[in-house]
Amino acid sequence: MNTLKIAVQKSGRLKDDSMKLLKDIGISIDNGKDQLKATATNFPVEVFYLRNGDIPQYLKDGVVDAAIIGNNVLVEKGNSIEYISKLGFSKCRVSIAVPKNMEYKSLEDLNGKQIATSYPNTVNAFLEKNNIRASIHVINGSVEIAPNIGLAEAIVDIVSTGGTLFKNNLVEKEVILKSEAVLAVSPTISAPQKAILDKIKFRIEAVLKGQSSKYVLLNAPNDSLEAIINLLPGMKSPTVLPLAESGWSSVHSVIDKNQFWDIIDDLKALGAQGILICPIEKMVL
């Protein structure tokens, strides 16, 4: 039986979010403590728990067929690796930061400076693109400490909230790359494994679409029905059912959660009542 081998981060929040996603798409995995490999009980998948920085090479070599990994790691170590879906979690950015007391007006201020980073390939490509001549000091670990101990004048590192930069008296100045978790695929993946991966991608898209949408039910006065329907396109068009009370209809639809409050305000202005908003677990288009 063909089995898809998929890699996830060995530990940390990315691993936790990855395993939750697999659970949400109906793949049941019993991974005991410190296991490096686990097999799904209800789907042809084996999960490999690997060091994040090693995953791109495993993908290149075909040791694993796919991986859930931060796009920033692919850019740094897997420039021949493609991803087929963005996953919406583990969002961060790879940014340039400098000490608060450093005079910084533009990228040109980095000319002749030392930059500490764990992302030398990403940084070198960015500097070359912008015609900046700076030296790279590669550090694996706590990059933020480099300016405080005189090792570098600037750093490039992952930034999520900026809290770590603040604690080390650093200020974010330039965003090199915006990143999130992605579903990456090995260039050597076979047709049977690709078919399994396509099923996983389909399920993931259904979960992500559900997470980004809300189900709305409301009572609408018939004289405003057309205007209300125009606000609620749904997947094809809203469902409209007559209410027992004359002159009123029940409208069911789907809205983007990012437009939620604006749409609700408009619905109320058009006379909609009894508005119910429900989460959507999954949505298959």
Rank of each mutant, 00 (worst) to 15 (best):
276 L>K: 10
168 N>G: 11
191 A>E: 15
200 I>G: 06
237 S>R: 03
20 K>P: 07
250 S>N: 09
112 G>K: 13
135 S>C: 01
87 L>Q: 05
114 Q>Y: 11
71 N>Y: 07
209 K>P: 01
225 L>M: 01
218 L>I: 00
205 E>N: 15
160 S>Y: 09
162 G>T: 12
132 I>G: 11
160 S>P: 02
187 P>S: 04
183 L>D: 08
98 V>S: 06
113 K>S: 10
285 L>Q: 06
280 I>N: 03
171 V>G: 12
147 P>K: 01
39 T>A: 11
71 N>W: 03
2 N>W: 05
126 F>H: 09
107 L>E: 09
18 S>T: 10
112 G>E: 15
59 L>W: 06
278 C>R: 14
272 A>K: 09
78 G>R: 10
236 K>W: 00
7 A>P: 11
125 A>E: 14
83 Y>K: 04
3 T>N: 08
136 I>V: 12
217 L>H: 08
135 S>P: 01
62 G>D: 11
101 N>I: 02
171 V>R: 15
122 T>E: 13
187 P>I: 04
55 I>C: 12
40 A>H: 13
199 K>I: 12
209 K>E: 11
37 K>W: 07
187 P>Q: 03
5 K>C: 10
274 G>L: 09
180 E>R: 09
178 K>L: 13
230 N>W: 02
194 K>I: 04
179 S>Y: 12
125 A>D: 15
198 D>L: 06
63 V>H: 05
81 I>H: 05
19 M>I: 12
122 T>Y: 10
143 V>D: 07
124 N>I: 00
178 K>F: 10
187 P>C: 03
225 L>Y: 00
49 Y>P: 07
10 K>Q: 13
5 K>Q: 15
9 Q>E: 15
204 I>E: 05
133 R>W: 10
71 N>I: 01
245 E>C: 05
164 T>G: 05
181 A>R: 02
84 I>N: 14
169 N>E: 14
229 I>V: 00
278 C>M: 15
36 L>A: 05
205 E>R: 05
123 V>I: 04
196 I>G: 07
194 K>D: 13
132 I>N: 08
122 T>K: 08
250 S>G: 12
78 G>T: 09
173 K>N: 05
107 L>Q: 02
272 A>G: 10
247 G>T: 02
195 A>S: 15
193 Q>G: 11
175 V>C: 00
129 K>C: 09
200 I>F: 04
232 L>D: 05
212 S>H: 06
46 E>F: 04
31 N>Y: 08
274 G>R: 13
154 A>S: 14
244 A>M: 07
170 L>V: 01
10 K>S: 13
218 L>T: 00
193 Q>C: 14
161 T>C: 05
106 S>I: 03
258 N>C: 03
63 V>K: 13
155 I>K: 08
225 L>Q: 01
261 W>G: 06
10 K>F: 07
33 K>D: 10
177 L>C: 05
126 F>Y: 15
98 V>Y: 09
263 I>L: 04
158 I>K: 02
177 L>W: 03
63 V>I: 15
88 G>W: 01
160 S>D: 12
76 E>G: 02
9 Q>S: 12
17 D>F: 02
246 S>D: 07
247 G>D: 08
105 K>T: 14
209 K>S: 09
24 D>P: 01
